[in-house]
Design a protein around this nucleic acid. Structure first.
Length: 606
RNA sequence: GGGGACGUAGUUCAGUUGGUUAGAACGCUGCCCUGUCACGGCAGAGGCCGCGGGUUCGAGUCCCGUCGUCCCCGCCA
């Protein structure tokens, strides 16, 4: 291979095949950098030594595919290229075959400037030849293999589940596949193999995993593709800690495959605590938590600052930002996403000037050091009285609005000043800091204001905490009652978070049919509705279901972080654009009348 | 569904207040060159300024619409 030859190979015969990466023509002496996925080796063609090959080599162009037979030669010391692993040797061409010519590609794999994504995606096969993409795809393979090997070693079976399955319209929108044999009916592509893996537990395969494609018809983001790969696993009889142990085990193996050692066990944090300290359920632990500094101010201070004294006053500290100009400080307010009466009291300098006592206490509480940026987020004094909405939550909706606003600002500030403090820098930084975290004890239900109803926060197969079970028995009206005790039910659910990215989400499942029915009832589903949607599953639960639980992690996201990439598209060979289009194959497309007729489908002409 | 950024040569970009023939670098083509490695030198080709409409004596530049790519909010059990 083109990355294989070393000084120790000098004198040997070798055959290299690959692409012409670059050609340097010196007249009677010509160099060809020959590239394959392993690297680049310099081929030398000398007119004096072999006129026929020299003549042929003059016709070579970038991206031609060639085979070169020759002798490996140690380079003279003054011509060694220290930037190449093969730089101590070169291949002296004795035979040259042009295996295929190439049109001039729109961009070259060896280009240093990155072409726009539209062109890259249209000519993805050229783009994938670039060494970064070759590295990322190889990394993806290594990570997936390490996980497979680890889980197999732990006694897990990899078992396939159907791609053509049943639509269960909850959660994300389904991709649908029309049935020809039964016109008017549709399969759905799985959003996750959730019910199948639970049924595999009922079937006696007590440790299951699958590296599996999942599909969600929702709008895309840099870290969200409509089809994506999950490391899906389920096991019988686990405590949450046992699932976490397995995940920590395969992540250790996966990161080791990328040459990175990580520490286990991962720290754990309650959902409520994550909200209070970071304003988000997937905190980035590389940055300091924020602090409630309400007590640092006197009631008079708060009044003068027009801050609501009954709600948290959050101090955000971003380390090592350095002195900010007046203009920079003024620009903080516009980047703020305000929720529910939250405001930024951005000019901590002004607070220092006008309220030196309070400012000193705040500085002490958040442990300010020279060059740190401190921003205060609080509710304005006009915020209404705390309503009794969700009285059973530890964090009230008004408090949540402040925490969430502060959480968004914290990340926005950290990203803006990433270059200065170096903490969130993703690319080009070899010394990477990986902070894993288990977030646990999520609420079982979330209040959906538009539906005026409680919804399952994770999914309806998640087991509630044993001691919260009685709170499910609040009557049929409770699902429509924002003040019902449902708000206090905690789920045996957990997320694994890395540097502010949700890597995966799992739970201990419900294994008793009566509990499952109670959850459906609590969600306002009648027995008939539940039966119509999940009848097969409710029935299966009745035939000796072992306690079970599991998790699913996003493989693409893991590889993205390991690759230091900003987008999933950098670690997926054939990704889709923000409008869910494949620019290379040009999908989706309209289909012909005949195909539609066979499926019994009519398309509305617009 | 909403907000923002961008679209000029094959590629990455520049293009002033609306004003003559739209530029640079890389790439490409030809010629020269025996130690380069992002080789070098000389010469050259290459443009529907995303598309459509408008304003204007005159539009890459201003206005309206439209298409595409990217980022964010909503959405993602």
């Amino acid at each position: 291979m083109c990355g294989a030859l070393r000084a120790s190979d000098a004198g040997k015969k070798a055959v290299l095949m690959g692409w012409v990466n670059r050609r340097r023509d010196h007249g009677n002496l010509l160099f060809v950098d020959l590239r394959d996925r392993t690297g680049v080796t310099q081929v030398v063609v000398n007119a004096e030594r072999n006129a026929a090959i020299h003549q042929k080599s003059a016709t070579l162009r970038n991206e031609y595919v060639i085979a070169v037979t020759g002798t490996v030669k140690l380079r003279d010391s003054n011509t060694v290229n220290k930037n190449m692993v093969t730089g101590e040797v070169e291949l002296v061409a004795e035979e040259l075959r042009i295996l295929n010519e190439s049109k001039l590609p729109p961009f070259l794999p060896s280009d240093t400037a990155l072409t726009n994504e539209e062109t890259r995606l249209k000519y993805r096969y050229i783009d994938l030849r670039r060494d970064v993409m070759q590295f990322n795809i190889e990394l993806r393979h290594k990570v997936a293999k390490a996980i497979r090997d680890y889980l197999s070693g732990q006694g897990f079976f990899e078992i396939e589940t159907p791609f053509m399955t049943r639509s269960t319209p909850e959660g994300a929108r389904d991709y649908l596949v029309p049935s020809r044999v039964q016109p008017g009916t549709f399969y759905a592509l799985p959003q996750s193999p959730q019910l199948f893996k639970q049924i595999l537990m009922i079937s006696g395969f007590d440790k299951y995993f699958q590296i599996v494609r999942c599909f969600r018809d929702e709008d895309l983001r840099a870290d969200r593709q409509p089809e994506f790969t999950q490391i899906d696993l389920e096991m019988s009889y686990p405590q949450p800690e046992r699932v976490w142990e397995v995940v920590e085990g395969f992540l250790t193996a996966a990161f080791a495959a990328a040459g990175i050692a990580i520490n286990t066990p991962f720290p754990r944090m309650d959902y409520d605590e994550a909200i209070r300290l970071y304003g988000i359920d997937k905190p980035d632990m590389r940055l300091p938590a924020f602090a409630d500094v309400r007590d640092c101010f006197t009631p008079e201070n708060l009044q003068q600052l027009a801050i609501n004294p009954n709600l948290p006053v959050i101090a955000i500290r971003i380390p090592k930002v350095g002195e900010l100009s007046r203009a920079e400080r003024d620009s903080i307010k516009p980047m703020f996403v305000a929720k529910g009466g939250a405001r930024v009291f951005e000019d901590f300098k002004r607070i220092e000037k006008n309220f030196p006592g309070a400012a000193a206490e705040v500085s002490a509480k958040v442990a300010v050091e020279a060059g740190d940026l401190v921003v205060i987020v609080a509710a304005s004094a006009q915020t209404g009285e705390q309503t009794a909405l969700l009285p059973h939550r530890k964090v009230t909706p008004q408090e949540l609005a402040i925490y969430a606003s502060a959480g968004l600002l914290r990340l926005a500030l950290a990203q803006r000043y990433a270059e200065r403090h170096g903490i969130l820098k993703r690319t080009g930084d070899p010394a990477k800091d990986f902070r894993f975290l288990w977030v646990t004890n999520f609420p079982m239900f979330e209040w959906d204001e538009s539906e005026r109803s409680w919804m399952a926060a994770h999914h309806p197969f998640t087991s509630p905490h044993e001691e919260d079970m009685p709170k499910l028995e609040t009557g049929v009206e409770s699902v429509k009652d924002p003040q019902s005790e449902l708000s206090a039910v905690r789920a045996l659910a957990y997320d694994v978070v890395l540097n502010g990215t949700e890597l995966g989400s799992g739970s201990i499942r419900i294994h008793r049919q009566d509990v499952q029915s109670r959850i459906f009832r609590a969600l306002g589903m009648t027995e008939e509705e539940a039966k119509a949607r999940f009848g097969f599953f409710l029935e299966a639960l009745e035939y000796g279901t072992p306690p079970h639980g599991g998790i699913a992690l996003g493989l693409d996201r893991i590889v993205m972080i390991l690759a230091g990439a900003e987008s999933l598209r950098e670690v997926i060979p054939f990704p889709k654009t923000a409008r869910a289009v494949d620019l290379m194959v040009d999908a989706p497309t309209p289909v012909g009348e005949k195909q539609l007729r066979e499926l019994g489908i009519q398309v509305k002409k617009s």
